[in-house]
Write a protein that binds this DNA or RNA. Sequence first.
DNA 1: CATGATGTTGCATGCGCATTCATCTTTTTC
DNA 2: GAAAAAGATGAATGCGCATGCAACATCATG
Lengths: 344, 344
Amino acid sequence: MKRKPITARELARMIGVSQSAVSRAFTPGASIAADLREKILQHAAEMDYHPNAIASMLSKSRTNIIGIVVSDMQNPFYPALIEKLSRALQEIGQQSLLFNIARGSNLEDQLSALRRYNVDAVIVISATILSAQTLLWATEGRAAILINRIIEDVDLSCVACDNAQGARAVADHFHALGRRHVAYVAGLSHTSTNSERRNAFITRVAELGMVLSTQIEGSEYSYHAGRRAAMKVVENAPKTDAIFFANDILAIGGIDALKEQAGRRVPEDIAVAGFDDIAIAGWPHYDLTTFRQPVDEMVRVVVQMVEEGSCAPGKPPIVKRLSGELVIRGSTAPAHHGCSAMPG
Amino acid sequence: MKRKPITARELARMIGVSQSAVSRAFTPGASIAADLREKILQHAAEMDYHPNAIASMLSKSRTNIIGIVVSDMQNPFYPALIEKLSRALQEIGQQSLLFNIARGSNLEDQLSALRRYNVDAVIVISATILSAQTLLWATEGRAAILINRIIEDVDLSCVACDNAQGARAVADHFHALGRRHVAYVAGLSHTSTNSERRNAFITRVAELGMVLSTQIEGSEYSYHAGRRAAMKVVENAPKTDAIFFANDILAIGGIDALKEQAGRRVPEDIAVAGFDDIAIAGWPHYDLTTFRQPVDEMVRVVVQMVEEGSCAPGKPPIVKRLSGELVIRGSTAPAHHGCSAMPG
DNA sequence: CATGATGTTGCATGCGCATTCATCTTTTTC
DNA sequence: GAAAAAGATGAATGCGCATGCAACATCATG
C-alpha cells in the first residue's frame, strides 16, 4: 500500500526529458527555459512528484535544517520564542529540528545526533545545562548562535537582550516610585542572564542610594521558586518595599505568594517587577511591570544571521545586544510613605 | 576553517579496513567481529568521525525523523506535550522536525516541506486549522497520528483523551456539589475536542436534571477568550452557579474575570472547572478543578505506535481513547444555598 | 555569411553510507 | 579429519538529486 514516491528520473522519462531538467525545474535560478520548466512543473504536479529533500541534502552541502537546542520549555518565554523562531525560519525555507536536552541525561548521546544531522546552523535557546565546552563540541564546524546566553571566552555568536539595561531600568523605576528597600530574587545563579541582571541591578541600587534589603539565591526559573523566594524576602527583610525578580515566571509566583501567603499588598506594600514580558505578565490579575525582551527583533536578527551565514564557523563571532523596553503596569506604583501595613 | 567532516571511507582507509566495515561497526546487529568493531569505534572516536545521518537516510528508507505539526503554541498544554513527546522520541532515536503551521498562510507550501523531508511519521498536534483533506494529502503515504483530534471518515490514527468521560465527570462533580445552573464555555467550535466535551456535558447535565443556564460560543482557546466568555455567562445567566470551560486556559481567564470583573466569588458563588490540567491550573491562586489529560500515557502510546510502525500507511487506522482523571481543587466546592452535597 | 556570445540541454559523476553478493576464515558436526 | 555450516570481510552497487562539462541551438554583431 505504501506507494513509493516517484523519482525525478522516472518523471523525466515519462515527459521525455533528462533528469537534470527536472532537477533544474525545481531549482530557482537554474539554467532552464521558462517553457520547459513550466511543462515539467505541470507534469510534476499531475504525477504528484516532490523532490526528495534527503537526496538533495546529500548532493548539496545544505540541509535547510536548523537545529534548535532547548532544555527549558516550562518557562513560557521559551515556547513563545520557539514558535516565532520556527515560523520565521520556515519563511526562509528552513525547518527546525528540535533537540530537547534533558537535564542529567548523557549529553554526549543527545548531542551526537546534532552532529550527525548536518544541520545548517545550531540555535541554542537553552540558558542552562550545557557547558561552554559541550557547546563548542556540539557545534563544532557549523554555524551556531546562542540566544540569551553570552559566553565570552569561546567563539560563539550570541543574540541577547541587554540585561544590564533592563535591570537598571527597573532600579530606576523603583527609585522614581520612592521605593527604598529593594530586593533581588535570582534565577539560576550560573546563567549569564541572571548574573548580568543581578550585577547591574545591585550596582544601580547602590548608585541611587537605595538599600538592597536582601538577595535570594536562585534555584530555578519557575512559579513555585518565585513563591518560595518571595516568602524568604518578607522573612529576611520585612521592610522590603520592592522586589526585582530575575524573570516573569518567578515574579508571578512571587506576587501570588506575597498577596495570598504573606498578606502583603502589591503594589502598595511591595512593588514587583519581572523580566521578559511573557503573556501572563499582561493578564489583568498579575498586571506585572516588567522589562520586555525584544523577542521579535531577536528572532529577526537570528534569522538574518542564519540567512547570511554570518555566524558560520571560522567567521568572527557576532555578539548582538538588543535593547528592550520597560513595560510599566500595575504591580508597581509610588510608595505611600507612613501608612505601611506591616502584618505579623 | 570549516573542517570538512571525515567520511567513513577516509576513516576506513586510515585504519586499513573497508568502508563496509566502518558502516557495520556503527550498525547494531551487523555481521562484524567484536574486536574489529571495537577497533573501528575507537579509531572513529579519535578521528572524531560521526556517521553522516543524511547519507544514511538516503540508503535506508528510514530518516529517524518525526514530523510534528503544530499550530497553537499559545495554549500551554501544547508546549508541555511537545516537550514530553520530543524527549520520548529522542529516547527511541527519533528527532522531531517542527512544522509550525501559521493560520491563514498557504498551507500547501508549508506542508509540501512535510512531504519532501521523508519523515518516518507525522504527528499532528494541531487541533485546528488543517482540514481532513489537507491532512490526508500531507500525510499521504506515511505513518500519521493525530493527537487530540478525531476524524472519523478518513484513515488516520488518533490518540485522544476520552473527552466525553471527562465532561461527564465534570457534570457529575457539579451535581454532587449541589450546583444546579451550569454553563458551558466552548473552545474552537469546529474542533472535535470541543464538540465531544460539549455534547457529553450537555447530555449529562440533562440526565442529572440540572439546568444548562447558558452556553457560550467559542472563538479560540485563550485566557482573554475565557475572560470574555465568563462575562457573557454572568450577563446572560446571572443564576449560573457552575461553569465548565472547554479547557484550562479558558477557565483561568474565566476565574480572573469572575472574581475581579464580575465580582463573583469562586467557588462560593460560581464553581469553575476546566480541562487539561496544565501547570497553571495547579497554581495556588487558581487552584482549578480540572479533568487531567493523561499526557504521559498519550505520549507513551504515540511513541509506541511510531516504534512499532502500527500507524503505517495501509494498516487499518488505530483510534486510542485514553481515560483521564478528574482533579478536584479549590475552584469547585459545595453550593451553600439550600440543597447540600451528598456525603462520601 | 562568419564569428562569437549567450542560453539551453543531456550525460556522467559524486554526495556518504547501507547492503547484497562473493570470497575467505572459522567453527561445528558426524 | 572431512564436509558443512556459520561467521567475517571487501568489492561493488544504488539511494535521488545537483552540477560540471560538453554538445548543441539561438541570437547578436561585424
